[in-house]
Design a protein around this nucleic acid. Structure first.
Length: 530
DNA sequence: CTTATTTGACCCTGT
DNA sequence: GACAGGGTCAAATAA
């Protein structure tokens, strides 16, 4: 019986156990109540049979029995009390875990709601709603609006869950979401590749958690989108919505997104969610794109030099932009590596020299210590994450400030792992999206391609009209002729099958030279004919 | 009345 | 050339 109490299971089970504890207590109290009856019975039954025995002897015997029974009862009661306390503690622990989990879910769902295309409807709903609960919700929304944190904080590692099934339950939805979202053509391709990887390394998906303060009340990407079409993509139950930017009448920027966000509340915050609030590419476009402007050759460099943050350089011919991730931390559980980028603190003023990257690059490192991050060889295309929080520091055996490492090596390392590509892209996108820079990652250099800085449109167009990137080409198959860099940005997130929106820069009236043809897109044809 | 959204049809591209 | 699929247009509809 004690074993039952000393093996607390899940919450429901614990409650049940508490009931059982109570019932046991009742039972023992029952014993206590019955005790006199027993003695009465003994006395009554023994009375006539032991009439010859001395009454004092019988009394002694009864007293002994009574005392022993009482002593036993006391022990049982103590034990019962101990078990009750223990069960309560267990329940409290479960309750704390559940509360924490619910808070996480809240964060996720609320943050996800931010990029919902129906933000106006949400606002309407919120404002029209009444009642204390609704007010509370509104307050939550407002507070989130003032400081929106895209954060999925996993339970602390030291708070070990009593039952692993709790963790499993938390991780489960993402798989379901992946399954309920049949991928499109490109996704199939990507998934097939990823599934192969995931079969070999079943739990190596990187999760990016970005903590960022939002300067504006709404998590707006700065563009005003107008829906102009909707289409059901083959193999995708969710129709794809087409939006065009209406900031300017002639704005060529368009984007496409899945029309439903239902699934998003079912899963932790993965890359696609982070990518959904698209940064205002069009603003950069409006700023950067002038008549006769040319597309600069742009490149991105990921650098980490101070070991306390990530610095991303976006450089082009004219200028370079540096994006600093103040407090990135790479944590992981055995099932899910997590990259946490804390943007809530002020960036350091220290700038970094170009050309450093965070990683050493052992060519043959199949497995790493629990506190190290490293990149596997390109053959295995795998990246292993340790069990503990990964931080950049000089003490890390594989994470060193190595000036000798070239960017090529870094990009090679990144190229080796798609999840890290996605993570990096997501991080960069989030940063640039929240920052005031017009810089936009057109396509990630992490795949050996190019990235747009302030004048990213040229790169976008360059991407769109022809030049394929080693990574982008594999990720944006569905875009086909439109190898749009931003499409890659978003398509890259389709590795998790949530099919985020993609952004398309329609060809402006600029005579971009293209390796393909000048009429790569139907829209362009139409524009020319019209 | 204005503006935004929906939705069927059309066009283009790739196979 | 036929077909499939994606992207866009534009009339109809809703707010």
């Amino acid at each position: 019986m004690e074993d039952v109490f000393r093996r607390p299971g899940q919450r429901a089970g614990a409650i049940e156990e508490e009931k059982r504890v109570d019932s046991v207590g009742d039972h023992k109290e029952e014993i206590a109540v019955k005790e006199p009856v027993l003695t009465d019975w003994e006395g009554s039954s023994m009375g006539p049979d032991n009439s010859r025995a001395s009454s004092s002897g019988i009394k002694k015997e009864q007293d002994d029995q009574l005392e022993s029974a009482r002593a036993e009862m006391g022990e049982v009661r103590e034990e019962n009390e101990r078990l009750k306390i223990k069960t309560r503690r267990t329940l409290q622990t479960h309750l704390m875990i559940m509360t924490k989990k619910s808070k996480e879910t809240e964060l996720v769902s609320l943050s996800l709601g931010r990029f919902s295309s129906d933000s106006k409807k949400e606002e309407k709903t919120k404002t029209s709603s009444s009642g204390k609960e609704d007010d509370q919700k509104i307050k939550e929304g407002l507070s989130l609006g003032l400081e929106c944190k895209f954060e999925v904080s996993k339970p602390d590692a030291n708070e070990a869950l009593p039952d692993p099934s709790l963790t499993n339950g938390f991780e489960e939805p993402k798989e379901e979401a992946g399954e309920t979202w049949p991928p499109s053509k490109a996704l199939k391709t990507m998934r097939s590749g990823e599934e192969d990887i995931s079969q070999q390394n079943p739990v190596k998906r990187a999760r990016v958690s970005v903590r960022a303060r939002c300067e504006t009340p709404t998590m707006n990407d700065g563009c005003q989108w107008r829906k102009y079409g909707q289409k059901i993509a083959k193999g995708n139950p969710c129709p794809r919505a087409y939006y065009r930017c209406t900031v300017a009448p002639s704005c060529p920027v368009r984007k496409q997104e899945p029309t439903t966000t239902h699934f998003q509340c079912q899963q932790p915050l993965w890359l696609p969610q982070l990518l959904q609030p698209l940064p205002c590419y069009c603003l950069a476009h409006h700023r950067a794109l002038g008549p006769g402007s040319t597309a600069p050759s742009t490149s991105i460099t990921a650098a980490n030099n101070n070991l306390h943050g990530l610095n991303f350089y976006l450089t082009d011919n004219l200028k370079s932009k540096q994006f600093y991730l103040p407090h990135p931390s790479l944590s992981s559980t055995p099932s899910c590596p997590t990259i946490t980028v804390d943007l809530t603190t002020a960036p350091s003023s220290s700038s970094s020299p170009l050309g450093r990257f965070i990683t050493n690059y052992p060519s043959t490192a199949p497995r790493y210590s629990s506190t190290s991050l490293s990149f596997g060889s390109s053959e295995s295309n795998s990246m292993s994450w340790g069990n503990n929080l990964l931080s950049y520091g000089s003490t890390q055996p594989y994470i060193k400030n190595q000036t000798g490492n070239t960017i090529a090596a870094a990009t090679k390392a990144i190229t080796a792992d798609p999840s890290f590509q996605s993570a990096l892209v997501a991080a960069l996108t989030s940063i640039i999206g929240t920052g005031d820079s017009g810089g936009t990652i057109g396509a990630s250099q992490v795949g050996g391609g190019q990235v747009g800085g302030g004048d990213n449109l040229g790169v976008m167009q360059k991407l769109k009209w022809g030049e394929q990137f080693p990574v982008a080409s594999s990720y944006s198959e569905s875009v086909k002729g439109n190898g749009c860099g931003s499409s890659y940005l978003n398509k890259s997130s389709t590795t998790t099958n949530t099919q985020p929106g993609s952004l398309i820069f329609l060809p402006p009236s600029l005579p971009f030279a293209s390796s393909k043809s000048a009429s790569a897109s139907p829209a362009e044809n139409r524009e020319h004919t019209n």
